[in-house]
Amino acid sequence: MEKETGIIKQMIIITDGKSNIGINPVEAAAKAKAAGITVSAIGIIDNECKGEEDIMEVEAITKAGGGLADYCYIQDLGMTLQVMTQKTVNHTLECIVSKQLKSIIGKDITNMEPQSRMKIVEFIENYGDRVDLLYVILLDTSKSMANKLDTAKKCIIDLMEALKNRKGVTKLALISYPGENGNYINTACDFTTDTDVLKEGLNLLRARGGTPTGPAIEAAMNLIFEYDAPASLRYV
């Protein structure tokens, strides 16, 4: 906490349905969390109201992944994605700070009197804007996403632009799932700060096939490990 170094690693899943191929996404999310990567998800709701099961899965994945869950209509995805990004960073920091407090003074934030938490809230918010961020977006490109994909692409580009206003460096990668030729996933774009590189990756995406959410989470983990190998043991 005294030295302001470190990287936050997080992934956000954008999906409109329940996973149906490959390893269980809840297990994959738990693995990611154990490796210091936060897993959050945004469930896109349709007018033809989706079943409880889809929502249950989003809740279960994010619970196991230590992240946040939110739901929105496709037309609100842009704002939801941006709010969620920042909230997740702060949420992750809150968990880290809380753990540190516990080891230093033997109690975490919720065991401090509410009135005295403001200083910590300020610290987290400030630091949340300055900390570097490795960020993978997992975009569901299964068949049901066909009529939503263009909007989703635009939202991701907007997010990239907005992230440039952060004081810390943000590197964004994009994994789409399913991939081509029977592959579970497709690395549409490796970590970058360049919007044009991201656009190129997005341009190629088409909606088709099933929803291998679990394998996509694993792939995102690997992408982060590869990028961050020497520092993978270094948490904030």
Binding site: K87, N90, E94, I109, P114, R117, M118, V121, I124
Partner: peptide
């Protein structure tokens, strides 16, 4: 559920 948001807004 968000401690950060509630504390911030109260303040």
């Amino acid at each position: 559920k968000s401690m950060l948001s509630i504390t911030r807004e109260y303040d």
